[in-house]
Design a protein around this nucleic acid. Structure first.
Ligand SMILES: [Mn+2]
Ligand SMILES: [Mn+2]
Ligand SMILES: [Zn+2]
Ligand SMILES: [Zn+2]
Lengths: 156, 156
DNA sequence: GCTTTAATGCTACAATGTTGCATCAACGCC
DNA sequence: GGCGTTGATGCAACATTGTAGCATTAAAGC
């Protein structure tokens, strides 16, 4: 595993995993660093399982429970956010700057999840009196380009 | 396809559970009838557990698996729809006329789910080329009136 | 280095949902 | 109304996802 030297003048990777953890007063551990890096690398919100696989690939031994707790902590700290997705398993992605909540697309055939950065999840709907809105989740379901193409004849 | 018998001048309870099942070519069983009636009675989308409790209350013995399968069948037939809700458990509600998909509110404190009939879940967003939208789910999270009132000081 | 305690690893458990298969009962037919 | 067919059920066993308790390890500050 490579040490990230901090010649970080790149505007694209604004904070190193270590800085992010330290900034929230947490201890810098292999697991947390690797989880954040997996989320930074991933092109879509990752499931617990996918993150676990990434850690294995990086040669980082870990316990299931530890991973759950690392993810919980990241969410508590506002570093990552949880996405419901439509199956039973949560997906996780880094909280990119601010509270920019966007919609997600869930392919019902291959299970792939895609960020729709352009589609805000924010609705400002009429809630009954006394109700307080904390956040909104918008998930679109359907078939992704690959899946739609490969068996379009099913009609369903 | 048979026409509804015409003693039905009530516009409010359009179909009996039995008719609904028969119209979809299914066998009319105690469990299915009771599940549909529970969904018709319920004021919000019901979890598997809540439906099971309703069956027990109605004195209808049943197996966990049977209930799962009854619900699966209702969803397959388009009689009911599944809602993700944000916990691990599905919620179910009858598919009221047409494809009228509305948003739902999930209270993060008491777990209550509320239908927001007025808020359409439909977004017509820009999907990448080749993607096919089947349906969309919009879930708003926060505190319901009761929960918001009773401990507003937490701030979280 | 030494101490403190946050974080981990392990075990055991809970909640939700699924699969296979033998049995039962709904429904069509007579 | 009885009968046979087969869809629906009940039961046992299992899978997946996530939690709780507690002893041990190791990160951070001195
Ligand atoms: Mn996203
Ligand atoms: Mn609803
Ligand atoms: Zn797909
Ligand atoms: Zn509430």
């Amino acid at each position: 595993m490579h040490e990230m030297p901090d010649h970080s003048h790149s505007a694209f990777v604004p904070v190193s995993a270590r800085d992010l953890i330290a900034a929230h007063g947490g201890r810098i551990t292999r697991t947390r660093v690797a989880v954040i890096e997996a989320l930074q690398t991933g092109q879509h919100p990752l499931s617990h399982d996918e993150i676990g696989a990434a850690l294995n690939a990086a040669g980082i031994a870990h316990d299931r429970v530890t991973l759950y707790r690392a993810l919980d902590w990241l969410v508590e700290q506002g570093i990552a956010q949880r996405i419901a997705g439509g199956e039973r398993a949560w997906r996780f992605e880094l909280q990119s700057g601010g509270d920019h909540r966007h919609a997600h697309f869930h392919c019902d055939r291959c299970g792939q999840i895609l960020c729709l950065e352009d589609v805000p999840a924010t609705a400002a709907p009429v809630l009954p009196a006394g109700f307080e809105l904390a956040r909104s989740e918008l998930v679109l379901h359907g078939a992704c380009a690959d899946c739609g193409r490969q068996n379009d004849q099913t009609g369903k």
